[in-house]
Amino acid sequence: MSEEGRFTIHLEQREGFEINVAFDWKRAADLLMDEPPPLGEQHGPNASRVLAAAAANCLSASLLYCVFKEEPPEDCLKAEATCILIRNARKRLRIGGLEVRLIVADVVKESARFGRCKDLFEDFCVVSASIREGIPMKVTVVDQAGEVLHRSG
């Protein structure tokens, strides 16, 4: 389940605020992201929704892996992710919190490993643990020739 090192995904603006995301895995389908009106047309999820989905997906996979290892039974878990949007002191929209609810079937709850896993799985979720700790970020803006126009972090 571990994935170490680095990976790069590629994003390309299409029309308006539509961004096509191409993943580094050949078998993974591209993802179309968009902003809600009035900016975009809501043809795909925006970044806040993808972040909430990523946290819920990671927690789900972490729990399933802990309980069942490589072969979890089908349809044994559902998840809900709620993203709480707030305005900061400068009135900028921010993610003020995430609430993830995992709904497990009896086969999960009754597993011999569930008692131990329910106290461990969150710590092994790469995404939610990273969000909680704060993720250092570097941002660079370059032109098509590669000249650096802006750098932060």
Rank of each mutant, 00 (worst) to 15 (best):
A28D: 12
F23R: 14
P45Q: 02
P37R: 14
G40M: 01
P38V: 11
E18M: 06
P38A: 10
E18V: 01
Q42M: 02
P45W: 00
E35P: 05
V21E: 01
G16Q: 07
R14M: 14
H43L: 02
A22R: 15
N20R: 15
P37M: 03
D34L: 04
F17W: 15
Q42I: 01
A29N: 14
P36G: 01
A22L: 06
H43V: 04
F23S: 13
L39I: 02
H43W: 00
A29D: 12
N46T: 05
L31C: 10
F17A: 09
I19G: 04
L39W: 08
E15L: 09
R14D: 12
N20P: 03
L32H: 02
W25P: 00
G16V: 07
R14N: 15
V21A: 12
A28P: 03
N20S: 15
D30M: 07
R27K: 13
G40C: 05
P45F: 09
Q42Y: 01
N46H: 06
I19C: 08
N20F: 02
N20V: 05
N20W: 02
Q42S: 08
P38S: 11
M33P: 03
P36Y: 02
K26G: 02
F17K: 04
A29V: 09
K26A: 13
N46S: 03
H43R: 15
D24E: 08
Q42W: 01
N20I: 10
V21W: 02
R14Q: 15
I19K: 09
R27C: 03
D34K: 08
K26C: 04
L31S: 07
H43G: 05
P45V: 11
G16A: 11
A28R: 15
A22G: 11
E35L: 03
P37H: 07
N46L: 03
D34M: 02
F23I: 12
P37T: 06
E18T: 06
